[in-house]
């Protein structure tokens, strides 16, 4: 069996998309914490975004399928809960992709949330809980469009 370097494995992981926000790869999301090649088979360490995130199982399956596709059928996926995932781990490129996709990227508490369409800062929170656990529902008061905001976590 062909052996892979950690870099090569990361490049494959770059092609695994978040099933709920397909413009983001799991690397953009920041949930892949390490690739270890010290054991018998490669180990990929993943930190889930939310405890109840239904995408977690799907992501693990997608990682396995993608690795198989590239000729690496035997891998170990380890779930690591601590330190807990935070939106700070999301890449800058990922935040840009989110905004282009129409989802306002996570902002620290002291920075204002802006409308991903018209960039207006005049927005209002409709509900803290949006279409998935990681998003809140907002509305732009200028262009009037509702939009998702990726919660700071």
């Amino acid at each position: 069996m062909k052996s892979f370097t950690a870099d090569e494995i990361f490049r494959i992981l770059e092609t695994v998309a978040d099933p709920e926000i397909p413009v983001l790869s799991i690397l953009d999301l920041g949930i892949v914490r390490a690739v270890n090649l010290n054991g018998e088979i490669p180990e990929i360490v993943v930190t889930p975004t939310y405890s109840g995130c239904p995408a977690t199982d799907a992501i693990n399956t997608d990682i396995r399928l993608k690795m198989m596709e590239y000729g690496l059928p035997k891998i170990k996926i380890t779930t690591r809960l601590s330190p807990a995932w935070t939106t700070d781990w999301m890449s800058q490129a990922g935040k840009k992709k989110l905004e282009d996709y129409g989802i306002a990227p996570p902002k620290p508490a002291n920075r204002e949330i802006t409308c991903p369409r018209c960039k207006s800062p005049h927005v209002t929170c409709i509900s803290h809980f949006g279409s998935t656990a990681c998003k809140s529902l907002y509305q732009c008061l200028d262009c009037k469009e509702p939009f998702d905001y990726f919660k700071c976590h």
Partner: peptide
């Protein structure tokens, strides 16, 4: 609708904690 989503999201969080 928004509140239906809110309470079921809370439910999902708790279920995820329970699974852990």
């Amino acid at each position: 609708l928004e509140q239906d989503i809110a309470i079921t999201n809370i439910s999902l969080d708790l279920l995820g904690q329970a699974r852990n």
